[in-house]
């Protein structure tokens, strides 16, 4: 038993376990405080409300894993919604062509950012910050007003509900789950995925080991661009609008989710299921607020910050003591 525990503590998934346990505790507290938390649909709503964020977080996790970052995700998401809404409102093309087009656009945008970063050794923070400015600007240039999506096919897709047990999920959730699975498999079971980890562990070593550094870097930003566009579609399914301020500050939420789920910003360490729980934790915090219902706008911000803080400090505290725990248990094993 003791050995099991010490192995668990030493395992690289340790911070993931901590996240999951803390999530369970948080949810448990929720059930204790508000009856409503017991309803399965409340749990499923965590997914429905955060489908877009989950998808975007997957993309950003790829970039964080190589020690990079992608600040453009929120803006690409907004641009995707806007272009999609504009295409459906002003041209006769089919919904699927429009979706394919915006996905292509996001992917290409990511690829360009990746190329600039990898080819010219530019700092990802700056390039993707510029990317964010660019996409936000373009969104506003297309329209400063909200464009509603009224295309019947698209609306039907948005209204689609798949029932699971006692509740239901939306199209966005299905997309998110598929994206999660694909991402987890790519990262865990393909050479490309492992090269990403190697690159994040040490870029110079990866290069000396003969791994394709350039190609991997460009691909990672391309994937992030694709995920942002895909997230944009999930977002559009939920909002049925294109709007300049969609996904404002989403990059920070995504980074926070990923990090809370165990990703290290220095690269090389991270785990897709962890990123999912990172999103869910933020979702639960917001659910708390909505159940409370009486908080003013500013108290909401403060409480979200405070809960985030409690969570992060707890995580840091446990990780900090991890080394001591391992040392102790290994000593006991010896003697």
């Amino acid at each position: 038993m003791k050995k099991k525990i010490s192995e668990l503590i030493a395992s690289k998934y340790f911070s993931f376990f901590v996240t999951v346990i803390l999530f369970a505790i948080l949810y448990g507290v929720g059930i204790g405080m508000y009856k409503g938390f017991m309803k399965p649909q409340v749990f499923l709503n965590l997914f429905i409300d955060n489908a877009a964020l989950i998808i975007v977080t997957i993309g950003i996790t790829f970039t964080l894993l190589i020690g990079g970052i992608d600040l453009s995700v929120g803006a690409v998401l907004a641009l995707t919604c806007m272009v999609l809404a504009w295409l459906l409102a002003n041209t006769g093309i089919s919904v699927f062509a429009a979706i394919a087009l915006v996905l292509l656009m996001g992917t290409a945008f990511g690829a360009i950012q990746g190329y600039l970063i990898a080819k010219f050794d530019l700092q990802p923070f700056i390039i993707t910050l510029a990317g964010m400015l660019f996409c936000r600007g373009m969104t506003a240039v297309i329209s400063r007003e909200t464009i509603n999506i009224t295309n019947p096919t698209f609306v039907a897709m948005a209204d689609f509900r798949l029932s699971v047990g006692a509740g239901f999920v939306s199209m966005g959730v299905i997309i998110a789950i598929i994206a999660l699975i694909v991402a987890a498999v790519v990262l865990g079971f393909t050479r490309f995925g492992r090269n990403i980890y190697a690159l994040g562990g040490s870029e110079s070593s990866a290069s000396l080991m003969g791994l394709p550094v350039f190609k991997t870097k460009v691909s990672v930003y391309t994937i992030s661009g694709f995920c942002s566009a895909l997230g944009g579609i999930a977002y559009a399914l939920m909002m049925l609008t294109g709007y300049n301020l969609h996904g404002m500050g989403m990059e920070m939420d995504a980074i926070a989710s990923s990090v809370i789920g165990g990703t290290l910003l220095t690269g090389g360490v991270g785990f897709i299921p962890g990123a999912l729980f990172g999103v869910l934790i933020q979702g639960v915090i917001l659910t708390f607020i909505s159940f409370q219902g009486t908080l003013s706008a500013w108290w909401t911000k403060i409480v979200v910050g405070a809960l985030l803080c409690v969570f992060i400090i707890m995580q840091a505290f446990i990780t900090e003591h991890k080394s001591k725990l391992t040392a102790k248990s290994s000593l006991e094993e010896n003697s």
Binding site: W298, I302, G305
Partner: peptide
């Protein structure tokens, strides 16, 4: 607490405007 800087300062970034509004 050895928290990664982005996350550590994210807390105040989130809560800070709330405090100002308060």
């Amino acid at each position: 607490f050895k928290i990664q800087a982005v996350v550590a300062t994210l807390i105040l970034m989130t809560a800070g405007r709330g405090i100002a509004q308060l």
